[in-house]
Write a protein that binds this DNA or RNA. Sequence first.
DNA 1: TCTCGCGGTTAGAGCGCTCTACATCATAGG
DNA 2: CCTATGATGTAGAGCGCTCTAACCGCGAGA
Lengths: 340, 340
Amino acid sequence: MRRVTMEDVAAQAGVSRALVSLVMRESPRVSESSRRIVLDAAAKMGYRPNLMARNLASRRTMTLGLLLNDLHNQWFAEIADGIHDEADTHGYRIILGNGRRSASHEDDVLESFLSFQVDGIIVAGCRLAPKRIEAVAREVPVVSVGRALRSRTVATVNSDDRVGARVAVEHLVSLGHRDIVHVDGGAGAGAAPRRGGYLAAMKDLGLERRARIIPGDFTESAGVAAVEELLTGRTMPTALFTANDLSAIGALDRLEQAGLSVPDDLSLVGYDNTALAGLHHISLTTVDQPREEMGRVAFKSLVDRLADRGTAPSSVTPVAHHVMSPELIVRRTTGSPAGH
Amino acid sequence: MRRVTMEDVAAQAGVSRALVSLVMRESPRVSESSRRIVLDAAAKMGYRPNLMARNLASRRTMTLGLLLNDLHNQWFAEIADGIHDEADTHGYRIILGNGRRSASHEDDVLESFLSFQVDGIIVAGCRLAPKRIEAVAREVPVVSVGRALRSRTVATVNSDDRVGARVAVEHLVSLGHRDIVHVDGGAGAGAAPRRGGYLAAMKDLGLERRARIIPGDFTESAGVAAVEELLTGRTMPTALFTANDLSAIGALDRLEQAGLSVPDDLSLVGYDNTALAGLHHISLTTVDQPREEMGRVAFKSLVDRLADRGTAPSSVTPVAHHVMSPELIVRRTTGSPAGH
DNA sequence: TCTCGCGGTTAGAGCGCTCTACATCATAGG
DNA sequence: CCTATGATGTAGAGCGCTCTAACCGCGAGA
């Protein structure tokens, strides 16, 4: 059974193919009566526009590619939610690509997006070399979420990890803590600004000499190892601020195993506000990024540029770099230190 | 700057457009020398085939649509991994759609897939009415993963939840437990067979009269509520088998809060082997589904049918229904009951 | 020498749609 | 009564590619 085309609908409705096209595109230049006739015919025949043909002819797809670095990571799901919401209201379609945590897969996906002639691309937590991303950005507007990127062609949306770390430290200090140790994220994305924010906050609060950083790598075992290192030392700090939630959970586990109570003996703050942190069983104080909002902003910034394109032909308008504020979520792993 | 087309490459290479097309499609009917010439020209000009045009002309897209019910759910990520792996080796492209836990969004996504002329569709954990899915299946091959569906047109891949529940019960009984309570998943997907498997296993092991089911709904709080109900009763069971990991974690939390130790006072088994279950801090005994394998099988079963299509035109060959075996993952929340 | 077969290449007709330019018609203004 | 005007509708040329059928040498077999 052949698929029904615009030609068929036109014949059935007794009008020209061009008119059917106008109706399908919701053009205002069609009389109400013909619109009805065409729509009825289309419905009766089960007509569905062929996007391939449409896109080929119109040279735009109303489709954006969204490259997610890792489907396993909740973080991306919320970014995607924000983007999808916004796309719905703007009539854009989103196709997702799975980067599977590897630069080469990401590259394949981008290549695929370009072949699909997407109108724009959003990369979330992309691992690709900046050069590569910029090369893509030369063909089609690109915005990057969750990865800082100093670029004149790639727009970015990020949350301010320095501020987030600072807020975490300030919270602990306001509770009375002074010996606050940071378990960092090594070379991972966001690790450096979080570490920097921690140090800056400690300094500003006059605790510079008490600052202490234990190397980590964003994993659960990094948290375990950090606590073990602390346990072998002479004195314990009264609070621990880890680079992400997973490490915090590792630390939590090891602390309880050592017979220490959280938050009575030691307060604990994570980062990212993952689903884990919200579990009753864990109830971790942590720093939240406005992920959905970040997705929304990314989408808007992309669509703005798409609109510009029509007016300012290939002009090198500088792209926007958005920085959003994180928020502290206080749960049950933080409290005043003993004897305070 | 106009995009470079096949025509341009042909001109540059001094050959016909048709030959360029053959080279791009890796046809064996091209001499090595012309292949080189064409590829060089293409590379030099930065040519990238336009998928829209290609798909329009060839009436196939080598693209499959993968509809994920919920990006937030890890379960889907692993299914997707299996599918992607397989797709890579078969030269298929995957476009993902985000169902966002709502039937209407899922419907939009399917509509979008069809407009994109995908060659086939995989729906994972789809909530849509079976009728709707079958309607889509009339236009293009469809396979459903993670949702049982008695259909002659929609293939399915599932894991056997009855067996999974049985294995969980048998494990507990082999440890010496006899009073095993099940917290079920209400009307959720998979809840019924898990409940059925529990009951059947209890019966087969002669524990029919000790079987007890507490209603739940797959949430953390269902686990909490179940424990609270048990605590108000006269006697506690020695083991708890919940319909999923999240409920198990709720139960774990409430048990510890009540001063009961797991597994010394009470053993606990979850279901799904989510990332949560693997956390050291939780270390939950649970039942694992071979998710990646399920994805793989789904892909293969789809591609098989695509191949059939060429030979058996629109024949109503009955579709396959695959059932995979789950596996028990023993961790630290199960042990022998006290005094055993 | 002529024909046949074969590897390699090409011409040209679409695929199903959009878009520009133009046709048509009724109404309004001069 | 004629033309300007605006609202609708149509014709027809592509968009960039695939695919069928045909073409073009060239060496082998008759």
